[in-house]
Every structure is written in C-alpha cells, then in structure tokens.
C-alpha cells in the first residue's frame, strides 16, 4: 500500500542527499519525492510516497526520525488530506483535433499554456488518478511529460508548525 509521509527538515545543504541515501541504502521503495520551502526559511518540507507493508512503513518512519536534521515525521496516509500532483504535457496536434483537445482539457480543468503550429502544452493539477486519466485519453498525442511528486496537507485547524527558537 502507498503511504504519504510528510517531513519537516532543516534546510541544510546535503539534507536531501541524506534522506534519499537512507531510503535507497535500506532498500525502501519510494514512488515520489518532492521538496520545497516553508514559511520558515530554515525549514524545508518534503513529501514522500512510499510503498510497503506496515512493518516496512513503520521502519521508514523510525529511520527518518533518527536523522538529526529531520525535525518532524507525519504519516498522512489515513488522514483527512488534500493531495495534489502537477503535470505538464506536451502534445503533437493537427489542425483537425486541436479543438477536441482543448475541450477535453476544459473538462479536466487543465490550462493551455502554449500553442505552436503543431504542438501544445497543457498544465494540469489534481489527484494522481485525474492526471493518469487525462494522460490515458491523450495517449496518442502526448510526446513528453513532466510530472511533480505528490504534495499533501491535512484539513482542519491542525498544522505541522515547528516551535521556533
């Protein structure tokens, strides 16, 4: 089963290498890894999607917690969350099917970011399923894909703030 694990880590050089080194060194399966700044410039947030049974996920969390630069580990798997991925799709189009593609994009709330004489770039945000669905529908036209990892945040008042010095 896939687990979504959210980390707050110190924003040091090398911290990403430390985390990815731990995951690969111990042979854990990671489906996606995304990282970005938080409100506090000294802290980075990393969202991991890992595959494994409960004991493996438990180990992954414990091992991440052992790292000195990891401040907080939260498992968002069965939490009430908003999960999003982001994708850019480059398509080859003919004059005849451009309209049809734009219509399809609208249904998925994808934005048309660039239109060339025979290409088009779509931007799409949504759940993993939504992105896969559109990718499948446009399969014959897509020539290149750039996708982000998953990011996730818990609903409600609870927030993963870290006490400041």
């Amino acid at each position: 089963m896939n687990h979504v694990i959210s980390l707050l880590v110190e924003n040091n050089a090398g911290v990403l290498a430390r985390i990815s080194g731990l995951l690969s060194g111990r042979g854990y399966n990671v489906e996606s890894f995304s990282s970005g700044p938080t409100l506090d410039p000294d802290i980075t947030r990393i969202t991991l999607v890992c595959r494994g049974d409960d004991t493996i996920i438990d180990q992954i969390k414990k091992q991440l917690n052992r790292l000195i630069e990891v401040i907080k580990v939260s498992d968002l798997t069965n939490k009430h969350t908003i999960d999003r991925q982001f994708a850019l799709l480059k398509l080859l189009v003919q004059p005849g099917n451009r309209g049809e593609i734009i219509q399809l994009a609208e249904v998925f709330a994808a934005k048309v970011m660039d239109v060339g004489s025979d290409t088009m770039i779509l931007e799409l945000t949504g759940s993993e399923k939504k992105i896969e669905d559109l990718v499948q529908l446009l399969d014959g036209n897509i020539v290149e894909i750039a996708r982000s990892g998953l990011v996730s945040i818990e609903r409600g008042r609870k927030h993963a703030a870290v006490s400041q010095k």
């Binding site: 050089a13 090398g14 290498a17 731990l22 000195i68």
Partner: peptide, 16 residues
C-alpha cells in the same frame, strides 16, 4: 568525505 561517510556515521558535517 561527507558523501562517503554518510551511511556509516550517526551524523556528519562539512563546515562551509
């Protein structure tokens, strides 16, 4: 050195 010793230490630093 930090890259090489990372998996065999409790922690490591390079002072920048």
């Amino acid at each position: 050195t930090v890259g090489i010793t990372r998996p065999v230490t409790k922690h490591n630093y390079i002072v920048t």
